[in-house]
Nucleic acid binder design. Sequence first.
RNA 1: GAGCCGGUAGCUCAGUGGUAGAGCAACGGACUUUUAAUCCGUGGGUCGAGGGUUCGAAUCCCUCCCGGCUCACCA
Length: 500
Amino acid sequence: MHEPSHHILEEESQLVQIRLQKLQQLRAMGLDPFAHERYEVTHALQTIHEEYEQLEGKTVSVAGRIVAIRKMGKATFAHLMDSTGKLQIYLKADEQGDKYDLIDLWDLGDYLGVQGFVFKTRTGEVTVHVQTFTMLAKAIRPVPFPKEKGEQRWYELHDVEQRYRQRYLDLLVNPDSRQRLISRCRMIREIRRFLDERGFLEVETPVLQPMAGGAAARPFITHHNALDREFQLRIALELHLKRLLIGGIDRVYEIGRVFRNEGISTRHNPEFTMLELYQAYANLEDIMSLVEALFRYVAERVFGTTVFEMHGVQVDFSQPWQRIRLMDAIREHTGLTEADFETLESAIRAAEKVGIYVERKDTIGGIIEKVLEKCVAEHLQQPTFVYGFPIDTSPLAKREPDNPRFTRRFEGYIFGKEVANAFSELNDPLEQRARFEQQYALRQAGDEEAHPFDEDFLHAMEYGMPPAGGLGIGIDRMAMLLTGTDSIREVIFFPQMREG
RNA sequence: GAGCCGGUAGCUCAGUGGUAGAGCAACGGACUUUUAAUCCGUGGGUCGAGGGUUCGAAUCCCUCCCGGCUCACCA
């Protein structure tokens, strides 16, 4: 919390003082830029370019931020920018009269509304020949717009810290950042469209929960004053969506923020966006097909291609994903076999053989998953479903009928990174109770991330849950790989930062 | 949490013990189809913060803050 401050009026830099003086001058002339509410805009800036043939010589009214000014004595050129693009404007002193001097009060970043006719300069640039103009808002701090020539840019805003803390500036001046973040938004829109087309109902479920469940992670804890009790912020969407499945919503999904009280890194933000969906009467293979179709759909509709590249590796989402059993993948890349993971002792020896540090709390399944992460994942560059996960790390998934140490669960990998997690959902309430009991034992033994025992969820399942396939996708991770970035902060508008 | 790197003008950066710099931006001037406009001129700094060493510190030392990367943690 900051105390209110009027420091900008006295202490700010010369650059700010000069802009404040310009503001005063405008106000003294009765031209307060902040007095405007509405400006009649007939065209977005990009449409002036697109519809030039029809618009040539016609009068238009446009608005945007000033991003460049080139004053040449008694003629002035400037560029305006709005969310669709940029447009050059042109003013002549002899047409503007006294108003021409107002140009001296313009700064980069100010909002301008102009009315004039459309023409092309002798160099062929579509331009509005301004008849009247109005300043619609003033920027009293300098906005670091880069100089540009074609695709080249000079003096961009590079400082990563400033780009994250002041994302509005990053969005304004760095087209790549703007494009990447907008792509993320469009991805989410297309995911919704894809699922809506297939009859899924989008729902919202509680963020505040008595006990956060559905995943293995440490929750954030908060307090409800009126009830005077502790709540946890959700770490997954799973258990409430399954309750809706029980309630007869056969195809259900949620795209929502989940919160995990863990480290921050290039691949982890404490709050991130998860898609979870559940489809009654579908199995693991149905979900694999759904994932293949989903990636292809989003790729085509948002990026106009199914081919993506990262670190020199190309993938093509028009092709089916590879499928490999987890233990087969481990054998292929480490030489370790299922027999090496028969007992905890042998599993620990096997892990050490491939250089993995085993913690006291690790179970056999936990060790197998560590081997997957450390030794196998990097090899899964092409889209791949790894299936058959250990039972003790998959307490919400059905057993494999002929291999009860493993479950009907897969993870999807692309470019060596996990992007999807899916099960044939466990719907046997008696077995679910036993699985929760195992998790409870782990928790008692000190594993803070073991799944909590959720009696209310078991009670719901006892009324009958249909067989179903379920899927979770980390939207941020998906956005990272489709936009080709290694940092989760680049696909979150306002990533978590320390107080600066 | 550990290691490495970084924080200097509004922006991008140079400056490794001796008067704080450059380009762009800003300000003043010239210029009526320019476009990284051009030309002439001017101002602008808590060198992340605090402490120390020194005649003298942006620079060397210590502590702290913030960030990046890697690792650990996070199935």
